[in-house]
Amino acid sequence: MWNPDVYLAFADHRGRPFFDLLSRVGAQSPRRVVDLGCGPGNLTVTLAERWPDAVIEAVDSSAEMVEAARARGLDAKLSGIADWSPKPDTDVVVSNAALQWVPGHADMLVRWAGLLDPGAWIAMQVPGNFDAPSHEAVRTVARSDEFADALADMPFREADVVAAPTGYAELLADAGCVVDAWETIYVHQLTGDTPVLDWITGTALTQVRSRLDDDAWERYRQAIIPLLAQAYPMRRDGTTYFPFRRVFVVARVGG
């Protein structure tokens, strides 16, 4: 279960990669623009502002996120990304921090490139920090004796869940696209007593939270706090630096 309010607690930080991604999309007058994994829709609405004549299609697999997106006036659909196929008039496909949840997403990108008209755009961004101390802390506490039974079959994501920029570039170039791929490490300056925990509670810990009752969840939180504090110490001025690597790919179909 996704909580839009928790996710939006860091809306400014999470939004920056979206705009960095879209800045490289050169579509002028697209007919249909699709946001796959639209979340609460706060970023999707900016697509309508940029391309006011386009049909905006929004898709997310979380009922809570779809409800929040609809509250922003979007005609959001509840569906998994793996089940989506482009309509004939689709000119731009955007996916921001969502495809890492979809097994085999690299093959899906190639499939979309084969279905879209020449001149269409595919733009996606995925986190590339699954080997970061924050995710290692999530796995370490989950595998401790106290939580091993409840979380034993939890499919934690490892570093290879996403490819390097070169890997995506080669796949899409072989599919006939012109590709712009890169990676960026954002150093987020966070505030609060447990800012990194607050951040990952809205993303990486959503599945963990769904497996634990309130008491177990609080014990999990107390166990992970010192690990995160050691990996991401608070500075004297009260800020915490949280490095976050992201992988970007923008492809123009058909050269």
Rank of each mutant, 00 (worst) to 15 (best):
W2K: 07
W2I: 05
P4L: 06
V6W: 05
A11K: 14
D12G: 07
R14W: 00
R14A: 12
G15K: 05
R16A: 15
R24P: 02
Q28L: 09
R32N: 13
L36D: 05
C38Q: 08
P40M: 03
P40L: 03
L43R: 14
T46L: 04
E49G: 15
W51P: 10
W51C: 12
P52V: 11
D53Y: 04
V55N: 15
I56S: 12
A63T: 09
M65E: 10
V66W: 06
E67M: 04
A68R: 10
A69K: 03
R72S: 06
L74F: 13
D75N: 14
A82G: 07
A82C: 00
S85R: 15
K87I: 14
T90P: 10
D91L: 01
V94T: 11
N96Y: 01
W101E: 09
D107K: 11
M108K: 13
V110W: 01
R111H: 06
P118E: 08
A120F: 00
W121Y: 15
I122T: 06
P133K: 01
S134M: 07
S134N: 03
S134P: 05
H135L: 07
A137C: 08
V141E: 10
S144M: 12
E146L: 10
F147M: 08
A148G: 04
D149W: 00
E158V: 00
E158R: 00
V162T: 11
T166G: 15
T166H: 09
T166Q: 14
G167P: 08
A169F: 09
L172D: 13
A173V: 08
D174G: 13
D174V: 03
A181R: 02
A181T: 12
W182N: 11
I185Y: 07
Y186F: 12
V187G: 03
V187C: 09
T191L: 01
G192P: 02
D193K: 10
V196T: 13
L197D: 09
L197R: 04
A204T: 11
L205T: 05
L205V: 09
T206I: 14
R209P: 01
D214S: 13
D215W: 00
D215A: 14
W217V: 09
E218G: 04
Y220W: 10
Y220T: 07
R221H: 10
R221E: 12
A223T: 15
P226Q: 10
P226A: 08
L228K: 05
L228T: 11
A229F: 00
P233R: 02
R235E: 11
R236W: 07
D237E: 04
Y241Q: 15
P243E: 05
F244A: 11
V247S: 03
V247W: 02
A251F: 03
R252G: 08
V253Y: 06
